[in-house]
Design a protein around this nucleic acid. Sequence first.
RNA 1: UGGGGAGUCGACAAGUGGUAAGUCAGCGGUCUUUGGAACCGCCUACCGGAGGUUCGAAUCCUCCCUCCCCAGCCA
Length: 574
Amino acid sequence: MDDAHASLPEVPGKDFIREILDEDRRTGKHAGRVATRFPPEPNGYLHIGHAKSICLNFGVAREYGGTCNLRFDDTNPLKEETEYVDSIQEDVHWLGFDWQDRLFYASDYFGKLYDFGETLIRSGKAYVCDLTADDVRAYRGTLKEPGRNSPWRDRPPGESLELFRRMRAGEFPDGSRTLRAKIDMASPNINLRDPALFRIRKAAHHRTGDAWCIYPMYDYAHALSDWIEGITHSLCTLEFEDHRPLYDWCLEALDLPNRPRQIEFARLNLTYTLLSKRKLLQLVTGGHVTGWNDPRMPTLAGLRRRGFTPEALRDFCNRIGLAKRDGVVEVELLEHCLREDLNRRAQRVMAVLDPVRVVLTNYPEGKVEELDAVNNPEDAAQGTRKVPFSRELFIDRDDFREVPPPKFHRLSPGQDVRLRWGYIIRCEEVVKDPATGAIVELRCTYDPATRGGDAPAGRKVKGTIHWVSAAQALAVEVRLYDRLFSAPNPDEAPEGNNFLANLNPSSLVVKAGCRVEPSLGSAKRGEVFQFERVGYFIVDPDSGTDSSSGGLVFNRSVSLRDTWGKIEKKARGA
RNA sequence: UGGGGAGUCGACAAGUGGUAAGUCAGCGGUCUUUGGAACCGCCUACCGGAGGUUCGAAUCCUCCCUCCCCAGCCA
C-alpha cells in the first residue's frame, strides 16, 4: 500500500486520536516522533478489550513511523504472576504485533522511581505520612466535602527523607506509612487529595523478588515510566480521565522535559460478554469454565482456541471505531468478522453431527466410489479432494422430516434431494424402532444419472444436503459452543444475584459419535474447517495425537448464517 | 446534590456552518450442487430537549435533561 500517501492527507473519518497525532506532527511536537506503549498489568490474561488497545497502540505506531513498547505495569506484587507475563507476550505476538527489543517492566524502574521520590521530598512536594489506611479514608473527605490535611503533612523534608529511607530498608510494617504527594486536600478532584505515591508491601515480586518492600502506586509509576521510555502519547481508557491531572502533576513536579500526553478513549464493551479481568478470574477459579483459554472466554487465548484468527480480530478492532462515548458493540459484528475471514480461507468438508443411517437400496453392495469435491468455492487454488460414496451413508437427522413443513427443501418421504458432490436420491421408506418410534434408517434410491450431483437438464432439485459414507467415516467429538451468558448485559442480574446467574446453561454441548469424512484423518490441531451447511470448526488441542484412529475433537467457532433457522423460528412464532 | 466525561438510525460510527457516510443487525429479492457466499433493494435518522445567532446549524451561544467515571496504601 501507499501508506505514505494514505496517512498524510487529512482523510475524513479519522478517529480523534489520529487527528491529534496529525496535529502534533504538523506542529512539530516531539520533533514529529510518535512513541506509544501497551502497558498491561500481568494479573490476568489479555482479552478482546485489550486487543482494541493493542491494535490502537501498535497500529498507530506503525502508521506514523513510530514505536510501540510492551511494558508490564507490575507495581503490585500481590496480584502479578509470571504465568501472566508469558501469556501476554504470546497473545500480543499471536495478534500480529511485535515490540522488537522494547520489552520493559515498570519494575525495571523501581530504582529511578525511588530516586524521584527522594527528589520530591527534598523539594517539599511529597511527605511521609503515618496515617493508617482507615485514617487516610477519614481525612480524604467525600465527593462533596473537602478533605483535611494529614497531621504529618508539614513534617520537615529532612524527617520525611529519613523515614522514606527507613521505609525502603524495611523498618516499618505493611500499611504503617506511605509517601504522599503534597497537592491539595480540598481539590474537587479526589485524585489530587494528597495521593499515595509509595506504599509498604513486604511481598515477593515476580521479578525483583524481595529486593523491595515499598512499591510505587499506579499514577506515579505510570507517568514516570512513560517519561523514562520517551513515550509521546499515552493512550488509555476513559476511567483514567480524572487521573490525568495527577499524571501531569508527577511530570511537572519533577520538572521533566518533553512530557508525554495522556489521551483517553472508550473501552470496548460487547453484548453477552464480560470484559473484566476480575470477573473473568472468578469464572476460572470458580470452575465455571475450564480455564483462561476455555473457548467460551473472551480472552485472546480462549478466542484462539475457539478458532478466531488474528486477522478477524484485527478487522473487528478496525471496524468498531474509536471514540470517547462509551457504548456496547453487538457480538454479531465479531461473529461477522470471523465468518468473513474464514469464508475465504477455511476448507470445506462434510460432517454429520447427528447421524441417521441412509441405505441406498438400488446401489450395489460393497461398491465404493471416490467422488470429487471442491475444497473451497471461494478459492479455486484450494483444489479438490476425493470423498468415498457407498450404499450406506449418514445424513443429519435434521435434514429429514417425515412430514415436511412448508418450504422444507430437504429429504422427506417421496422427495428428491441432492447429496452434495454425490447423487440425487429419493426417500422410499422410513424405518422406525417399533418400541420407541424413533427413526433408525431411511431407505432410499439413487439416480445413477446424477453422479457428482449433476441434475439432468430441466430437472431441478431444491435441496442439497451433506452426508458421509458410513463405512469410511471417522467418529469424532464435536463441542458446540455458544455465548457464555444468556443476557445481553451479563451484569444485569435479578435482585440478589450477580453475573453468575446469567451463565448460559447450554454454552457448551458436547456431541459424541459425530461422523466426518475420512479426509479429516490428517487434520492437525488448530486447523479450521467449514463443515458444509453447519459452521466453522477448529481441531482442539484435546484431540488425540493419533488422529487417524479417531480421537479428533472439534470446537465450533461460529455457525453459518442460518436462513432456514429464521424461517422456522418465524413459522413457530406465527 | 463536588469534579471529570459523553449524548447522531436497533448497534458501532463519519460529519468540525451549507442542508445526515459507511458497517453490523433486521427486512425483501436475484443467484446458487453449502437455505453458505456473492449481488440488488429497503431500513424514509429531522442529529438528547427547549430557546437563540445566521440567508442557512448536527455543527456557534444559552438554559435544561439523560447516561458513564471518581471517595483502593488496585490498575
